[in-house]
Design a protein around this nucleic acid. Structure first.
Length: 263
DNA sequence: TTGCTGGTCAGTTCGACTAG
DNA sequence: CTAGTCGAACTGACCAGCAA
């Protein structure tokens, strides 16, 4: 079988529905091997790659416009939903509704030519909004502390998903100006609670983790390049050479330039 | 369990300085 | 002149404690 591959990274959110067959999707360092029906929700600017795993398969994907984007679940929520794919509890009325809606949307896309463009876009937009609202409703039910369905391991995986979202974010954007606010915006939690949660799961604060990433990058630049300390500090995500130099000395006991000489 | 508040201190920036 | 260090001042991340 010649394997088909699709995917990439896009500045808009995406819905990916597997109608028939079996595929493998890699998204945010997670690999999901699923059989139809499965509906993935892919956040904007997150790389993903899909590989076919059966001879017969069919899928469609939709890029979301700004109106639908405002409704789109946070990355942490998307992670939880995507992890459920291929193993959906079809006896759940809400899950049934979501899948039926995705099927209907697929039928609509097939008959796209039968509608004026504007009419097609309006109908599709309503279907997309319905699907997103249903998914968010289902996730809220899952994470509601009063819900009977909320099992201990689900709670754990929810926290894990939030922390992993933050870690992947910092791994991707460590060169940018990452602040507590940008992290908060990723998962929509209270800042102090976010830090407590991160420490609980990872035994370090978000910024300790970020600095570890940056320092690792700096060390490899010192070892493998002839860049100046100024350039390395910038390429490692430090806004200021002064701060980088001091942080480096604190960690390794000597300045960056001396470290390079000795290594 | 989750979110908020206020105090503390580490993180960050900036300007001055030294060495080569 | 460039690269790097140091010290002072400011900012905001973090923690502890409390409330809902």
């Amino acid at each position: 079988m010649q394997e088909f591959e699709a995917g990439g990274i896009h500045p808009y959110h995406e819905l990916l529905y597997i109608q028939t067959g079996k595929v493998q999707l890699t998204w945010l360092h997670q690999t999901y091997e699923v059989s139809a029906p499965a509906l993935f929700i892919l956040s904007a600017n997150t790389p993903h790659r899909m590989v076919q795993k059966s001879v017969q398969y069919a899928y469609y994907y939709l890029e979301l416009e700004s109106a639908e984007e405002s409704l789109f679940p946070a990355i942490a929520e998307a992670r939880i939903w995507n992890a459920l794919q291929g193993n959906l509890e079809m006896t759940s009325a809400v899950v049934r509704l979501i899948i039926d809606s995705a099927e209907l949307l697929g039928s609509l896309i097939k008959q796209k030519q039968a509608f004026p463009v504007k009419a097609f876009e309006t109908i599709a937009s309503h279907d997309i909004n319905k699907i997103i609202i249903l998914i968010k409703h289902l996730l809220q039910t899952m994470v509601n502390p009063n819900s009977q369905q909320m099992l201990a391991d689900e709670k754990h995986s929810f926290k894990q998903a939030i922390i992993e979202t933050l870690m992947r974010y910092m791994e991707t954007f460590y060169l940018e100006d990452v602040t507590l606010k940008t992290l908060v915006d990723q998962v929509h939690l209270n800042p102090s609670y976010l830090i407590r949660l991160f420490r609980e799961v990872h035994d370090m604060t978000p910024f300790q983790y970020l600095n570890t990433l940056r320092m690792n990058a700096a060390v490899s630049y010192l070892q493998e390049s002839k860049l100046t300390i100024q350039e390395i500090s910038s390429l490692s995500g430090y806004g200021s050479i002064h701060y980088f130099s001091r942080l480096f000395k604190k960690k390794y006991g000597i300045s960056p330039s001396l470290w390079r000489e000795k290594n």
